[in-house]
Amino acid sequence: MKHGMKILFAMAAIGAISLSGCASTIQYDDAGSAKPISTEFGSSDLQQIAEAMVESMITFPPMVEMTASRRPVVSVDMVKNKTMQHIDTESVTDSIRTRLIRSGKFRFIDRTTDAQTIEELKTQQDSGLVDKKTAVDFGHQVGAEFLLTSNLSEIRQKLGSTTDVYYKFTMSLKNLKTGILEWSDEKEIRKVSKRGTFGG
């Protein structure tokens, strides 16, 4: 009888401690965490793609040769999102561009801020507020030599409680003068989810 009570107490203690140890709370987590929540496109997938593309591009031998003496000017095209999901693909290319700028090997032009640039130049030229000696003229921006294009596609398969999603991100660097693709690479990611018997 006494022994039985002790076991009961011990079990209650296990329950209480394991619950209090992992109680649900709000906390900061590692922004570089690779913990998958679902088979949807996630933050870790974005980081893996960005790092793989940049590492491939800056170590590709013709690129190493070209960037040894100069920093070519590149423009980034929108990602063609061929998946069934809504993905902020600009965020993917932003990450790639940021990493390429950090490498110190490429320079970029940004077409998404052209409207603001034109507005600012117009003000400098026409408002009469700005000293003509320091006002920036139209027509002096540098044209991009290369265009960075990319595609994101997925293959989704489902059988019973298993969902298997394959992502493929392909990126190419196109020489705008010659039309030649100077570099291209792809990154594959596969995510599998198995729904438990009692899971929703």
Binding site: A31, S44, Q47, E51, V54, E55, I58, T59, R99
Partner: peptide, 23 residues
């Protein structure tokens, strides 16, 4: 800024992992 990357090792398998310096 670095992120964790997944790696799967099959039984007794040897595998290489690579990285390139950011600059």
């Amino acid at each position: 800024a670095g992120s964790w990357k997944p790696l799967i090792l099959y039984g007794r398998e040897s595998k290489t992992i690579q990285s390139v310096a950011p600059n």
